[in-house]
């Protein structure tokens, strides 16, 4: 079976690009796993971990503020922040929490405030879990 072409890009660089077996995504409406030949899909992501299963073993990458797009060519994840778990220490996490708090403070209407609050809660939950 052909692998899934997966790309993870952040504004600063191309974080991951290659063929993998499956990718687990933190979709805003629930976790999902994308396998090769998945139907076309666009979804928003909540803060969480992208788990890549491939020939190099599983890899976990923290993402915040992003989108995933599946098309016949493969899966593309666009994330404002993408940090491999290996580089994610307590300090980096604290920075992410602070970031999420700023977003919440800057929220202008109820809807964005709700989303920001949700995102902040997620980041905090993840922080305590790690």
């Amino acid at each position: 079976m052909a692998g899934l072409h997966f790309e993870l890009v952040s504004p600063a660089k191309l974080v991951f690009s290659g063929d993998v077996d499956s990718v687990q995504l933190p979709g805003s409406e629930g976790e999902m796993t994308i396998l090769p030949q998945h139907a076309p899909l666009i979804t928003t992501l909540r803060p969480g971990f992208v788990v890549v299963a491939g020939s190099q073993g599983p890899q976990k990458i923290f993402v915040r503020g992003g989108f995933a797009e599946v098309n016949p060519k493969g899966l593309t994840v666009l994330a404002e922040r993408a940090i491999p778990v290996a580089e994610l220490d307590a300090a980096a996490f604290a920075a992410q929490v602070k970031d999420a708090e700023t977003v919440l403070a800057n929220a202008r209407d109820d809807e964005t405030r709700r989303v920001a609050q949700q995102n902040l809660d997620h980041v905090k939950a993840l922080q305590s879990a790690v």
Binding site: G27, E29, A39, P40, L41, I42, T44, P72
Partner: peptide
């Protein structure tokens, strides 16, 4: 991109 007639699933709404 050409989806060959398929449409995107959007989650949440477009």
């Amino acid at each position: 991109p050409d989806l060959g007639g398929a449409v995107y699933d959007a989650e949440p709404e477009e």
